[in-house]
Computed example of a mutant assay.
Amino acid sequence: MPVDADPILEFARERGIQVIEDAAEAIGLDYKDRPCGSLGEMSIVSFYPNKHVTTGEGGMVLTDDDELATLCRGFRDHCFQAKKRFFHERIGWNFRMTNLQAAVGLAQLERLDESVTLKRAMGARYTKGLEGCATLQLPLAETAYAKNVYWVYGVVLRDECPLDAAAVMPKLGENKIGSRPFFYPMHKQPVFHDMGLFRDESHPNAERLAERGFYVPGGLTLTEEEIDRVAEVLRGVLES
């Protein structure tokens, strides 16, 4: 689900701040009447394998600004100059997508509406199977400004649950059910501590989500029977 973006955009606009939108997990998702990925001066989307549109790896930068678009195309392709190919005024990289990857992505883009419809049905099926489980917090189906496309189906163990994600996930694995933890908080990352950032900081909400949240299977080929089994096993783990 997207953040409520309008207050952020208004805050930035009043102060002359450019907004870069992280829409990595929001392909096919709308914020009010606008597609996610169109809200800031620039945005990024991800084509990692578990996204609604995938090219195996990689992603895309979106912008309406011609100058920024030219810069990004340069960084993607070694910053070659148009008139002097091997002459460089900036450092660039080889981030070019192959034609084969692009073809795979375009074919999936044509089926995006179908994929979103299927993902929403899968999310509703999971919710039906897990609702009423007192120790689970389930994802919202919609808010006042967006309707969930269930890029993944994430659950959070409530504080009254004696288990955390690290205890529940192996039990799912014993039943041949894969799962994935939530992202680890930035302020807990050693690489940033080595840079002198976030030291001695505490962010309880982020820490709680990392400790008590995880994702259940959500691939587009998952059947209703498989979803029902995941829900049944998870309930059994939590209610035993």
Rank of each mutant, 00 (worst) to 15 (best):
Gly178Ala: 09
Glu232Leu: 12
Met97Cys: 01
Ala134Cys: 09
Leu62Thr: 04
Arg111Ala: 07
Gly154Lys: 09
Leu106Gln: 13
Gly16His: 13
Ala82Val: 08
Ser202Trp: 00
Gln137Arg: 14
Leu163Ala: 12
Arg158Thr: 10
Arg199Gln: 14
Ala121Arg: 15
Ser240Ala: 12
Leu130Gln: 09
Phe86Ala: 10
Asp22Gly: 13
Ser202Ile: 04
Asp159Trp: 05
Leu71Lys: 11
Arg235Val: 00
Ile20Glu: 10
Gly129His: 10
Tyr153Met: 03
Arg229His: 14
Thr55Asp: 01
Leu130Gly: 14
Ile91Phe: 10
Val104Leu: 02
Val116Asp: 13
Val237Ala: 04
Ala26Ser: 15
Asp65Val: 03
Gly58Cys: 02
Arg34Val: 05
Arg158Ser: 06
Gly40Ile: 00
Asn148Gln: 03
Thr63Asp: 06
Glu25Ser: 13
Lys176Met: 01
Trp151Lys: 13
Gly129Leu: 04
Lys83Glu: 15
Asp159Val: 10
Cys133Val: 15
Glu160Phe: 06
Val191Asp: 11
Leu112Ile: 06
Met122Trp: 07
Gly154Asp: 06
Arg180Ala: 06
Asn50Asp: 05
Gly178Ser: 10
Leu157His: 12
Val152Tyr: 08
Ala141Tyr: 01
Gln101Phe: 00
Tyr215Ser: 13
Tyr153Ser: 05
Gly178Thr: 06
Thr143Val: 02
Leu29Gln: 15
Val45Ile: 15
Phe183Pro: 01
Phe183Ala: 14
Arg76Tyr: 02
Asp65His: 12
Lys32Arg: 15
Gly40Lys: 10
Arg15His: 13
Ala107Thr: 07
Asp228Met: 07
Phe95Cys: 09
Leu209Gly: 00
Trp151Cys: 14
Ala165Ile: 01
Ala12Leu: 03
Val45Gly: 11
Gly28His: 14
Glu110Gln: 14
Leu130Thr: 10
Val149Asp: 07
Ala69Cys: 12
Ile177Cys: 07
Asp4Tyr: 13
Val230Cys: 13
Lys188Ser: 06
Cys161Ile: 03
Gly178Asn: 07
Ala166Val: 02
Arg90Pro: 00
Leu140Gly: 09
Leu209Lys: 13
Glu41Thr: 13
Tyr48Asn: 13
Phe95Leu: 15
Pro204Glu: 01
Asn205His: 06
Leu106His: 12
Leu136Cys: 13
Gly74Ile: 04
Leu112Ser: 07
Arg85Val: 10
Tyr126Met: 08
Glu201Leu: 06
Glu89Gly: 14
Ala5Met: 15
Ala69Gly: 12
Met186Tyr: 06
Phe95Tyr: 14
Gln108Thr: 00
Gly28Ser: 11
Phe182His: 13
Glu211Cys: 06
Glu10Met: 06
Pro7Gly: 11
Arg15Gln: 08
Leu71Met: 10
Thr98Lys: 02
Ile227Thr: 13
Ala146Glu: 03
Val191Gly: 00
Asp22Ser: 12
Tyr145Gln: 08
Val237Tyr: 04
Phe47Pro: 06
Phe198Leu: 07
Leu62Arg: 14
Gly37Asp: 05
Ser43Trp: 00
Val216Arg: 08
Ala69Trp: 03
